[in-house]
Design a protein around this nucleic acid. Structure first.
Lengths: 109, 109
DNA sequence: GATCATAGTATCATAATTGATACTATATAC
DNA sequence: GTATATAGTATCAATTATGATACTATGATC
């Protein structure tokens, strides 16, 4: 769609921020603050490169806060910003929805 | 993530179905039944090929119903299935959320 | 001074998505 | 009999997204 249409539609704007392959699942995982390491273990199909990229994008888009501790070895914690936290209820709804239609989804996809 | 982890998590299962670039916006557009043609005009950055593909996947995954009318020129209508309709409230929430955070989203992304 | 742990970055390769273009089918209107 | 409209399909190219692998930095520990 055109730049203009995209800007005018809240849904498309939102999708521009959280439309990536891992984004929604990442936000979901970050309902509790997590270290880079923990996320990597949780998403064991994601590479470091991808994880870093997705997290940085979510940070840039204002959903995720990145807290670097001056330690060695490094410690970096990821958590939801206010805006990200405000999105949580929708994620809960989605999770509930997924649970409700679990069998149906499994049989098709 | 592994096949198993994916299957066990409702969120990831759901994302597998509606995680594509256009899927959520398409479902949103289909809150009212639409013809192929109308969708194409609405998403004026999508090619026929892509639109067909995404619609077929949504159909396969049980979100969208495809009704073919035996006419010439052809007429095909797309609408939400019961499952798709059940997902609508979440889409409304997302749209509201997007409207609420419109400026914030625009300034970042 | 070698090793470990963490959170990366850099580079290149591969896979997936998207796009461009041309083509098909056919009842109806001209 | 030619053009038109709709909803596609087929084929190939270009662009993005994703992945694999190797590498970096450094204080603490052995």
């Amino acid at each position: 769609m055109t730049e203009e249409k995209q800007l005018q539609c809240p849904m498309n704007l939102l999708m521009g921020s959280i439309g990536g392959k891992w984004k929604i699942s990442l936000l979901w995982a970050l309902k509790e603050t997590k270290r880079f390491n923990e996320l990597q273990k949780l998403f064991d199909g994601i590479t470091q490169t991808m994880l870093t990229k997705q997290l940085r994008e979510l940070e840039r888009d204002g959903f995720v806060h990145r807290e670097v501790y001056k330690q060695v070895p490094p410690k970096v914690e990821y958590s939801l910003t206010d805006m990200g936290t405000d999105f949580l209820p929708i994620l809960y709804n989605m999770n509930d929805w997924g649970a409700k239609h679990f069998e149906e989804l499994k049989s098709k996809g």
